[in-house]
Design a protein around this nucleic acid. Structure first.
Lengths: 129, 129
DNA sequence: CTAGGCCTTGACACCGGCGTCAAGGCAAGG
DNA sequence: CCTTGCCTTGACGCCGGTGTCAAGGCCTAG
C-alpha cells in the first residue's frame, strides 16, 4: 500500500503520514523506487493516532499507545504506560471541566447583570454613569 | 505614568502593553521623549483586558468591552456588543463542556476496561492476544 | 515523446499572546 | 564622564498539527 492509499483509507493526507513517521509513530518500508510501502497493521496504527489526536491527546501522549499496539495487543489502551497517560488525561479533563464550569457561572452572572441594567433607562451603545 | 509602572500595576509586562496598543486596545500619549504616558483610566482598561484574556476571550472579542469602558460605562460588560460576545462565548463554553463531558466518559470507559484486563493474567508491558 | 498522476524531500505559513534579544536614546546620580 | 535603569522600535521564536508550494523522479497510457 502506497502513502496515498493509506492516507485515503485512514481519512487523512500523505503530508500528515510523513509527519507521523518523522515523529516516530508510523513505520514504512521502501520500494526500490524509494516509495513508502505500508501494510495493514499500519492502517490500524494510523487510525489509533487519529482517534487519540481527535480526543485531544498530543503526539507525545500517543507514543505509548502505538507501542502497545505494536507489541501485539488488540487495543493500544491496555498497557501500563497507556493507562498512565489515560489517567493523566482524565485528571486534566476534570480540571478543565471545573474551570469551564466556573467560567460558565461567571459568564451567566455577567450576562444577567448586563441584561438587568438594560432594563434601566439606558438603551444606547453609550451609557454614561 | 510610564509603561513600566503601568505594567507593574496591571501585573503584566511592557511588551504586553505595547502589544495591546498595537492591537488598538490600549491608548497612550507621548512625552517629549517619545515615552508613552498613561493615565489611570488606562489602568482600568488593561485590567479589563487581562481579566477577559484570563477568562479565555481573544483579542478580537475584547474590543467591544474596551470600547464600552471608554464610552464612560463603569463596566465593560453592559453594552450591546459586549453582551453579544458574552452570549457567543457562553454558547462556546457550553459546547465545549459537552465535548469534554463526552470525552471524560470515553476516558473513564477505556480506563475501566484496561484495568479490568489488568486483572486477567497478563501484567507485563507486552501482552500478546 | 508526452501528458498526467503518483511519489520524493525540504521548507515556509498559520494561529495568538506574548518572551526575548538587538541596538540604541534619554535621564539622573556619583 | 560613566554607569544604571528606564524607555524606544523591530524582529524572530514558540507550540502542534497540518496545508501548501517548489523542484524533481517514477510509471503508465496514448
Amino acid at each position: 500500500m502506497l502513502i496515498g492509499e493509506l492516507a485515503t483509507r485512514a481519512g487523512t493526507s500523505p503530508r500528515t503520514l510523513r509527519y507521523y513517521e518523522q515523529q516516530g509513530l508510523v513505520r514504512a518500508g521502501r520500494d526500490a523506487n524509494g516509495y513508502r510501502q505500508y501494510d495493514d497493521a499500519e492502517l490500524r496504527v494510523v487510525r489509533e493516532i487519529r482517534s487519540l489526536l481527535a480526543a485531544g491527546f498530543g503526539i507525545e501522549d500517543i507514543r505509548p499507545f502505538v507501542a502497545c499496539l505494536r507489541a501485539g495487543n488488540q487495543s493500544g489502551h491496555v498497557c501500563p504506560d497507556s493507562v498512565l497517560v489515560l489517567r493523566r488525561k482524565l485528571a486534566e479533563v476534570d480540571g478543565f471541566l471545573g474551570q469551564l464550569t466556573d467560567l460558565r457561572q461567571q459568564l451567566r452572572a455577567q450576562l444577567d447583570e448586563a441584561v438587568a441594567l438594560r432594563e434601566s433607562p439606558c438603551r444606547t451603545q453609550i451609557c454614561p454613569p
